[in-house]
């Protein structure tokens, strides 16, 4: 369909008078009765007439300029708004990941009924599919294979790499939507969330724990068995340890991804008083402090 402005040889912002003038000049030149032998002229004259039929009528011209009708005068299809396509076979790539299972059984069955991709003529890679998987702190620390159940009932075995951080994604090649026309399947992207542990904390590739010690252990030193992510380790509490002192257990942390190095476990000593302060302890403390005052706050 040719642009009627081009057919009449005028600019888009030509006035109505200009358009009329252009038509008259072309009509005079091309009229079949004035050019009986010229076949081309007749074709062109038809086009010019049609174009003027559109642009010569000011209401039609305005509609055309706004895009409501095309050059033949036909209404342009309203298939321009996305809602016409939503949910249709050409818009499967926009299906939301929203899960309606909380609305009841009826809805989870409906949700599961996804139509298979209509085969298209082109060879296309299937879409990636995103999942979310929550794992324990210790599962993430040591690495684990987890089974992920998919909405359609099938399951996927996912290898959680040792030392993975919360928020990282595991990519399983070829486990996404099927491709079409012989194209490869997309990937499954699994975002891993690592749940916190009541005792172990992560700091980079190190593990941090608070290690409570008694007053007497703080003063006199001692030994303690400390759990790590793999085993129990016996540590020596140095004589005269204050709260906050860190004992470093080399190699008891997490494996740095892609390296053979391991982080450490840091045990932060915390002096813990007994649950109930008995009279004997009080008396001891009072007597001691008279003879041995000291100020830990002198630099504040």
């Amino acid at each position: 369909m040719e642009d009627p402005y081009k057919v009449l040889g005028v600019d888009k912002d030509a006035s109505d008078a200009d358009i009329k003038k252009a038509y008259r000049q072309l009509a005079k030149k091309l009229h079949p009765d004035l050019n009986p032998a010229d076949k081309d002229a007749e074709e062109r004259f038809k086009k010019v007439t049609v174009a003027f039929g559109l642009l010569g009528d000011s209401e039609k011209r305005q509609k055309f300029d706004r895009g409501e009708i095309d050059a033949s005068g036909a209404e342009t299809p309203t298939h321009q708004y996305y809602k016409e396509y939503a949910g249709g076979e050409n818009a499967q790539q926009y299906r939301s990941d929203a899960n309606f299972e909380d609305l009841g059984d009826v809805f989870s069955d409906l949700f599961r009924r996804r139509g298979a991709d209509q085969g298209q003529h082109l060879k296309m890679r299937g879409r990636d599919v995103r999942y979310h998987l929550s794992v324990d702190f210790l599962e993430a620390a040591t690495g684990q294979t987890k089974r992920l159940t998919l909405p359609d009932g099938s399951s996927l075995d996912v290898n959680i790499p040792e030392g993975i951080k919360s928020g990282q994604t595991v990519r399983l090649r070829g486990k996404g939507m099927a491709g079409s026309g012989g194209g490869p399947a997309g990937d499954a992207l699994i975002e891993v969330e690592v749940r916190p542990h009541p005792m172990f904390r992560r700091d980079g590739n190190d593990i941090v724990v608070d290690l409570p010690i008694t007053i007497d252990e703080a003063v006199l030193g001692g030994t303690a068995d400390v759990p790590t992510i793999s085993k129990k380790v016996r540590v020596t509490i140095p004589k005269g340890s204050s709260s906050g002192r860190i004992l470093r257990l080399k190699g008891q942390g997490l494996k740095a991804q892609g390296a053979n190095k391991r982080g450490d476990q840091l045990c932060v000593l915390q002096i813990a008083l007994p649950g109930e302060i008995d009279g004997e302890l009080e008396a001891l403390a009072e007597k001691w402090r008279e003879a041995h005052p000291y100020n830990p706050r002198e630099n504040m």
Binding site: H79, Q80, Y81, Y82, Y85, A91, Y94, M124
Partner: peptide, 22 residues
């Protein structure tokens, strides 16, 4: 907007075009 891929060339169907308009 998620056009299908024909090799490395994006190809837009009608729904994709409507999406671009949106």
């Amino acid at each position: 907007v998620r056009p299908a891929q024909d090799g490395s060339t994006p190809v837009f169907n009608e729904a994709d075009v409507a999406r671009v308009r949106l």
